[in-house]
Nucleic acid binder design. Structure first.
Length: 500
RNA sequence: GCCCCCAUCGUCUAGGGGACCAGGACGUAGCCCUUUCAAGGCUAAGACCGGGGUUCGAAUCCCCGUGGGGGCACCA
């Protein structure tokens, strides 16, 4: 019997300030998996309370990336839902309401300190090697003074009145209880002077109102976790389950992934954005499989997962709290596996745009014939272009030196090619089996290994040293083109052959 | 500087006191297959950060160190 799990309401709440990277993708994936697993809802919410950092491109990139990965949301800014709106900038009255409640209860207070004063205080504290934090100047202003100053037009923020004594215990599902001294927690700003809330207030209010049962977020929130718990306690709300996910490290294991671009940009630049991966020819299935396993595991022997498998097998208990370095060679491996798992028709369809993008005159019908030949040879969709463009291009132009067979002279290679030409011209059928038998016979009479002969023909016909299987390729290209490419090869070889 | 989190092969990880001279995957090397390249099959090298405890027994529990990471904004 499968134990009964309550439907969870899980949210992915990005801030539209930049691009959608694989760290966000993993959080969203886990959100999605847990919602689906429990038969609950996956909710998309936009945390756009910072007008300064707002990036208008961002939102559509999130949608596109999420859809590409197959992470479809049940409620969100674009589709609405029972707790709309799902855009924080459209919910400010709500936050103000709860901020007022906190002030009324004495759990928060108005602060009139200017940014200038705050930075000055910070500087002095740093000079004294003290932790930088608010010094509490406005903490105990009288109600009358607060009102007077507000009436006079002085701008104000609302700060949380963190208890000066005692401890707060926060429960993280992966790490267990974390207990900290309240004295180390700052009086964080909850509402800015603009009236906009800060994450700490907005996210808590929304998670509560939207009935979020499980909060999965990055471990960069661990330092302010106690504040969040205190806010829940101050408002007497029941807390959700808190899960702080590990962060992604550079492939080297040194440093956070997003800061990676500063090093090795040219030699080993790897994509960190979902849409970049798409462009490079990675399958969404492979990306999902790959990121799912960075910070989560199923068992000892299973690593190949489709989305439905992940939904079936995902559990919060198997999440790993330690930081994980991303491993791009493993992504390549998964991409190969998922490419091979595709049907020929499906792969053909996905391959097509890559040829078009590379300006190859690609005929879909022809591509469908080629797909089986390259399916097990490519590790990315993009790779297919360099491997198979010769099928579509009218001519090939190999370097004459490349046409020279292994351990042979140009003259010997030219002779072999002429002989092959003769054999192929007299072929009664261009069926691969027949062609192969005849060419092997020729190699024999010429005293060459099959590899020597096929090597020459491969370069002559495909223009490449590495290609899909030669005989099958010839059959697709067609007699006429094969013969003309061989004739051209003979000319090239004659051109570099020693006159003697 | 202060607070917090984490710690098994190069990397992702299994492991939650005896089943572990630590298992799998990627990568690497070799072999087989083979018309190239892949794919596939087989094999090899490769790790419990250090020191103290607890225990008959520790990769597993506790403490201290060390290392790595995160955070210390009217950003999220």
């Amino acid at each position: 019997m499968v134990p009964e799990i309550k439907p969870a309401r899980v949210r992915f709440a990005p801030s539209p300030t930049g691009r959608f990277h694989i760290g966000s993708a993993r959080t969203a994936l886990y959100d999605y998996l847990y919602a689906r697993k429990t038969g609950g809802q996956f909710i998309l919410r936009l945390e756009d309370t910072d007008q300064k950092r707002f990036d208008p491109q961002s939102e559509s990139e999130f949608y596109e990336s999420l859809r590409w990965l197959g992470l479809h949301w049940d409620e969100g800014p674009d589709i609405g839902g029972p707790h709309a709106p799902y855009r924080q900038s459209e919910r400010v009255e709500l936050y103000q309401e709860y901020a007022d409640e906190l002030v009324a209860n004495g759990r928060a207070y108005h602060c009139f300190c200017t940014p200038e004063r705050l930075s000055q205080v910070r500087q002095e504290q740093q000079k004294r090697k003290e932790p930088p934090r608010y010094d509490g100047l406005c903490r105990s202003l009288s109600e009358r003074e607060v009102n007077a100053r507000r009436d006079s037009g002085e701008s104000t923020v609302i700060r949380f009145k963190t208890p000066r004594e005692g401890v707060t215990t926060c429960i993280d599902l992966l790490r267990g209880p974390i207990t900290i001294d309240n004295a180390t927690v700052d009086d964080y700003i909850l509402v800015k002077s603009s009236g906009m809330p800060v994450y700490h207030l907005a996210a808590m209010v929304d998670d509560y109102l939207m009935e979020i049962t499980h909060v999965l977020r990055g471990s960069e929130w661990l330092p302010t976790f106690p504040l969040h718990v205190m806010i829940y306690q101050a408002l007497e709300w029941q807390q959700p389950q808190w899960v702080h996910l590990s962060i992604f490290l550079n492939p080297s294991g040194k440093g956070k992934l997003s800061k990676r671009r500063t090093t090795n940009q040219r030699t080993s630049a790897k994509a960190i954005y979902a849409l970049e991966l798409r462009q490079m020819g990675y399958l969404p299935e492979a990306v999902v499989n790959w990121i799912s396993l960075m910070g989560w595991s199923y068992d000892d022997h299973t690593e190949f997962f489709q989305m439905k498998d992940l939904i079936d097998k995902f559990t919060l208990e198997k999440l790993n709290p330690s930081p994980a370095a991303v491993n791009y060679s493993k992504l390549d491996h998964f991409n190969g596996l998922h490419i091979r798992a595709l049907s020929t028709e499906d792969l053909t369809e996905r391959l097509y745009p890559f040829f078009v993008n590379a300006d190859v005159q690609c005929d879909p019908g022809l591509l469908a014939e080629i797909t089986p030949l390259i399916q097990e040879r490519i590790r990315s969709l993009e790779e297919a272009v360099e491997m198979a463009a010769f099928f579509f291009n009218p001519t090939v132009d190999p370097d004459p030196q490349e046409l020279v067979g292994k351990n042979l002279t140009p003259a010997e290679s030219a002779t072999a090619t002429r002989q092959a030409l003769a054999v192929l011209r007299n072929l009664v059928s261009f069926e691969p089996e027949h062609t192969e038998a005849e060419l092997r016979k020729l190699a024999d009479t010429l005293g060459l290994s099959a590899g020597q002969l096929f090597g020459i023909l491969r370069v002559a016909i495909t223009g490449q040293r590495v290609s899909p299987p030669l005989i099958e390729s010839m059959s697709i290209i067609g007699t006429e083109t094969v013969l003309s490419r061989l004739e051209q090869a003979v000319e090239k070889l004659d051109g570099i052959a020693d006159p003697e």
